[in-house]
Structures are given as C-alpha cells and as structure tokens.
Amino acid sequence: MVAEQLNGFLLHRRAYRETSFLLNFFTVENGKVSAIVKGARGSKSDKKSLLQPFQPLLIGVSGRYELKNLQQVESTGGMLRLTGQALYCALYLNEVLNRVLADDIPHPEIFVLYQQSLHALVVETQFEPILRTFELGLLDALGYAIDLAHDADTGETLVREGYYRIVPEQGCVYLGAIRQPGSYLGQSLLKVASEHWDKDSLLVAKMITRAALAELLGSKPLMSRELFKQTHFGSKGRGH
C-alpha cells in the first residue's frame, strides 16, 4: 500500500501496549491525523527522538480507517527550541488543538497560525499577545468568531465609552454608559478587534477567548493552565 505523505507536527503521543505509540499529528494536508507506530519504543528504534512535539515532520501514513499506520517519519527542519514559559505556552497550544480539532478535516489556516505562533514563542519574550492572537484566529477559523468591532443590534462601530456584554452567537450587545458586572468597555473591545495589545486589551481578550473556548472544550478543564499557576512557589506567575 502506498503511504500518504503529510507535513506537520506531533501534537501528542502516548504509550500503547509493549512497544507501540499512539500518535496525534496536526498536518497541513489532512488536519489532525491519528496514527499508531509499532516497535518504536524499543532501544533500537531512532523514531523516538523524531516523534516529539514541536519537531517539523514529514510522515508517511497508510490505512483506510481513522487510526492510520505510521510507515515512515522524517525531520523537515530543526526541532523548535522551546524552554520554560514558552514551552508551557506551546504545550497549551497543543492541548487546545488536540481537544478542538476533529480527525481528518483539513485546516490549513489554523496550521499556518500554529506554525507562526510556535516560531513567535521561540523568539519573542511577551507570550500573552501570541496566545491571544492564536486563540482569536482559532475561533475565527472554526467559525466561532465574535465581531468585537460592531454592535450586534445596529451593526455600527462600538461606542468607545459605552459598555457591552458578549452574547454567544450574537456578539457585542450594548448595555449603557454605566459599568456592570461582566461588561466590557467599547474602547477595550475595539483594541482587541484590531489586535492592538496592551495590559487592558490582553485581559479583556483573555476573558473573551476563555469563555468562547470553554464552549468548545466542554466541561473538562485545560490542564496546561495549571502550569502557569506557579505563584504559590514564590516565582512570578504569568497568567494566560
């Protein structure tokens, strides 16, 4: 059987039986792909070192069913050197993608976004804008985009001084000129919409994307967020 060649990254691998791995890839061509590789956990196999997250790969898979067989794997570039907080952020991206993507549905635009975000995590020092841009882009690509620049009822640009509430599947609903619990200032929403990042817009974007992603992710919480709660160890925690 001819193996299908796909370009992508490993999202997740877990041990299966004695020497096998169950793998989830995110590929340009086919979106998320699940595959099994046999005999890769033995001491003689060199696939272990390639089958790591954040390593650009060319994989060959075969099989007619949802769970494919991994025939070969090659590196198509150096492994992205992520450490510390950047690594936690990258693990967060993997966890979100692994949870929200369905098998075998191509999402080239999300792939590009993922790749850009990973590269940005390697070079940048401010991670929150990268995460927020990724989350907004992901929601957009999956069809859950929220129009943060226009009033849901009138379709006009938001009033900068007005307060708005985010209603799922509708958008920004005008509440009035007085602050209420769970409301956002028009000015902040406009900044998020144009991805103009400062302390205020990052916080607003975090709350909005978290609520929107919660609908997609279901009730099971994201474990990556636990990694960021290191404040009780005395080090500076970076919320995300």
């Binding site: 999202l11 997740h12 877990r14 693990l91 967060y92 993997n94 966890e95 692994n98 099971k220 994201l222 474990m223 990556s224 636990e226 990694l227």
Partner: peptide, 11 residues
C-alpha cells in the same frame, strides 16, 4: 511527568 494533554498536572 507533567503532561497537560493527558490531564497530568503538578499535583
């Protein structure tokens, strides 16, 4: 080991 994707966190 820590593996958020498998639901394994610090605790």
């Amino acid at each position: 080991h820590l593996s958020p994707i498998d639901g394994i966190g610090p605790s």
